[in-house]
Design a binder for these strands. Structure first.
Lengths: 217, 217
DNA sequence: TAGATTGTTAATCGATTAACAATC
DNA sequence: TAGATTGTTAATCGATTAACAATC
């Protein structure tokens, strides 16, 4: 569908566009120009138009973009239309937070299972799912592998479990453990989200100053 | 301390260098060349040398880099040496996960408080801290504002609380809510970590294929 | 219509990669 | 010493910004 090559940087900005557009919709804003949106997001109007033009012409000269329509378009680009299934591996506090609070539906996902090793958690109902024991995972995967798995268990089992999931046909890994997963299968997509990297980035700028562009002597 | 301008991209890679180096140390690897490290991380040797050279010459011709020494240097660059204090706002599952599991110490932080609105949580001890009521925050901030605050409460109070924290002297915000915080004060650093962006990026590549570079017809 | 704003092409800027002399 | 690998300069590549004709 994309007209040209779409750079990774563009892909990273798309979800942010969507968030800002949804906030505009909440505020009952009907139309927005690239100039206004850029000001809101702290980026140039040029960049917005350039980014969107990778996927089509969604605006109108002299008018700008219809917020509702652009939300639909960006959602489609991000694949939200495809209903996908997800399971969560690990029902500790992080797993619970994600199972209970994360709005999977809003992003086109349906939560179909959650797994943990701790006996005392098995059977507990959180949000839409009941926690099952890890030793049931293999069987469950065989009957109906989910599209993605959310990894919130401890880092040391990450590689082995990832391998098992991929062998069963899981096509996406949303990885909250602190080890980068690298997967050879080119049909499997991995998104690593190491919290520590984010804190260290914060710490860097607290230490060296936030003047990313200024001429520091 | 940095010799030249340090681009944001470089800063984003530093924590990842640190993670890989620490893994090498665990595996008792004493020295590593930019070539080997690059292969491990999936980036070019040139990039590693270029990145590190922003901060100094840490290697040795014909030898490469001493792992231990480079860990120290990168840690220093990232400001881990500075002992900093942190509080967590919000003691729901996500807050608990972070309070209980995140290795703040390893990154130079000391957790000094946690706050929530829910009466039934007040006083509960998690890891090193006892949960206090949000209405004590103002007083606590007055006597000893922390260096950073970790925001894990619901998005709708984010702006107001951020403002309160900054007014009290907090210099860094590690923001897990789903709204971007933008802060006018140039001395305050914000790191937004919206989970949804990450899931949508995953979804994009699942939808369009992961061939970031291949010539897609 | 006149004004506003798009999509796109061209110009600029910055980041990554390649190359190599220096040297451990 | 010969081989390996750095730090750095130069070349390439890609991403962002600027400009503008097209047009709602």
């Amino acid at each position: 569908m994309p007209k040209n090559k779409v750079s990774h940087n563009v892909v990273l900005r798309l979800p942010r566009y969507l968030r800002y557009l949804e906030e505009l919709r909440v505020r009952n804003v009907v139309r927005i120009s690239s100039g206004e949106l850029g000001q809101l997001m702290g980026i140039t109007a040029s960049q917005i138009r350039q980014d969107l033009s990778c996927f089509g012409g969604f605006g109108q000269q002299g008018y700008g973009y219809n917020v509702d329509m652009l939300i639909k378009e960006v959602s489609d680009i991000l694949g939200i239309r495809h209903e996908r299934t997800a399971i969560v591996i690990g029902a500790g506090n992080l797993g619970r937070a994600i199972i209970g609070k994360f709005p999977f539906q809003q992003y086109g996902f349906r939560l179909t299972g959650a797994y943990d090793l701790a006996e005392n958690l098995i059977g507990e109902q959180i949000g839409p799912v009941a926690i099952r024991h890890m030793n049931q995972l293999a069987t469950d995967l065989q009957s109906a592998p989910p599209d993605i798995a959310v990894l919130t268990m401890s880092s040391n089992s990450a590689d082995a479990i990832a391998e098992q999931l991929i062998a069963a046909g899981v096509r996406g890994l949303w990885n909250f453990t602190n080890v980068d997963l690298t997967v050879s299968n080119p049909n499997v997509v991995v998104e690593n989200l190491p919290f520590s990297d984010s804190l260290l980035t914060l710490n860097y700028y607290m230490t060296h100053g936030t003047n990313r562009d200024s001429t520091d002597k």
